[in-house]
Computed example of a mutant assay.
Amino acid sequence: MAEALLEAAPGAVRALVLQGDTVLEAHLEREDQPLRPGHRAPAHLTKILVPGLRAVATLAGGAEVLLSPLPKAPEGSRIGLEITRSALPEADRPRLPRARPLGEIPPETPGPSLEARLRAAGHTVRPVTGPHDALEAAGWSETVNEATTGQIPFAGGLLTVTPTPAMITIDIDGDRAAELLAHSALVPLAKAIRRLDLQGSIAVDFPSLKGQARKALDEALSAALKAHLPGPHEATSINGFGLVQIVRPRTRPSLVEAVRTPGFHALELLRRAARHGHGPATLHAPPALIQWLAARPALIEAAERQRGGSLALRPDASLATSAAHVS
């Protein structure tokens, strides 16, 4: 049975699912993204986009969601709905959460928390507190770095993970012979999909193989996914160009998307300030990170209470995001 380390910090809850010293999964649940799958609420049908198919509904607090399929109700009607997919980050603007209509109008009820989802998956959950940074010691920063760079080395090769608006792409490259490289990538590929919580459509570019070699790779890929990627998923056969599509249910942002969402690195910096050290401190970061934090004084106050000292914010345009630090 895997153990999940769960840490609640200002602005977010983080978790690593471990098998011994190996990171199986990494998760982040932000406080500013409260519409989790399973969230039920009353809403108003505010705008029909495609008659009979899709509409925008608005919850009591003003949050908009994409509703599909449509209930038999006109615009302006009061309806009940359930969130099926959280909001997704994109370069221009986030994609709205998705929801389905309910047959009744329920009281507003939050969807299962990260802790609840981990327990439902059968993991032993261990909340981590105190001065020892168990999450960091277990590999949180290393996993975040994988998600940020998209580069995951394996014996003889490299996986490069790239998010796009349509899908996640994974390129397999290396200096081994094509067949050996392709087979060497299978287990690292399956483990990376799980570890980084990649969802939806995932396009993988394998070295091109022909005939029996391609058939054997198809069978080996199926076995690797079955062994190392729990939960529902489907995979196409590998085509003549080496491309295969793996599809997993899409319910929330992957870690690869989460690290690219505005505020992620600011929350990481705030976590370090809250956990490491005691007494007054200064957060040094690029202006965009400092502005994001300055606009959220409640988060600063929560981190100050955890640290036991005041936190000053100092913008520094000469710093890269990766060089943000606490002094």
Rank of each mutant, 00 (worst) to 15 (best):
L45K: 03
V187L: 08
R95G: 07
A224R: 11
R307E: 03
L102Y: 02
P112D: 05
Q291E: 15
P10R: 06
S310Y: 00
A203N: 12
E25T: 03
A302H: 01
L159G: 08
Q33N: 10
P106D: 06
T162W: 02
E29W: 06
L102Q: 02
A182C: 14
P51A: 15
A185G: 14
V65F: 08
L267A: 07
R314F: 02
P71A: 06
L24R: 14
P249R: 08
L217V: 05
E82A: 13
A213E: 10
T261I: 03
I202R: 04
R119Q: 05
L313Q: 07
R314V: 03
L269E: 03
P97K: 15
L45Y: 01
V326E: 00
K210A: 14
A317C: 08
S318K: 15
L59W: 05
L209S: 09
A288G: 06
Q306R: 13
P97Q: 14
E108I: 04
A12K: 05
P165N: 10
P127S: 08
A43P: 00
L5N: 07
G122I: 06
E75D: 13
L53V: 11
P163Q: 04
L313N: 07
A295F: 02
R176M: 12
A323V: 07
E104H: 14
L158Y: 06
P230E: 04
A87F: 05
A224D: 06
A302W: 00
T84G: 11
H325A: 15
P230Y: 00
L118S: 00
H228M: 07
H183A: 15
S318W: 06
A55S: 07
A116M: 04
L45P: 02
S222E: 12
A320N: 12
A298V: 07
A91W: 06
S77H: 03
L198Y: 01
K191R: 15
P10H: 04
A285W: 01
L135H: 08
H325P: 05
T236G: 10
L158Q: 13
F206H: 08
A155G: 11
A216P: 01
D21E: 15
P315G: 08
E108Q: 13
T22G: 01
R85L: 12
P94A: 12
H183V: 09
L221H: 07
F154P: 11
F206Y: 12
R272V: 10
L217R: 10
G277C: 05
A138I: 09
P232H: 05
S68Q: 13
R195E: 04
A177L: 12
I48S: 10
N239F: 03
R14L: 11
E75T: 14
P286D: 07
G309Q: 06
E64H: 13
P34F: 06
H276G: 06
L96Y: 09
D197E: 12
F206P: 04
L319Y: 01
P101L: 04
R126A: 13
A120T: 09
V247L: 04
V161I: 15
G242D: 06
G62D: 11
P112F: 03
L81R: 01
S141K: 13
I105G: 07
R36W: 02
M167R: 14
P207D: 10
A220L: 11
P34A: 13
L6A: 03
T164Q: 10
I48D: 04
S310F: 00
T169M: 10
P131Q: 13
G157H: 09
D32I: 13
E136D: 12
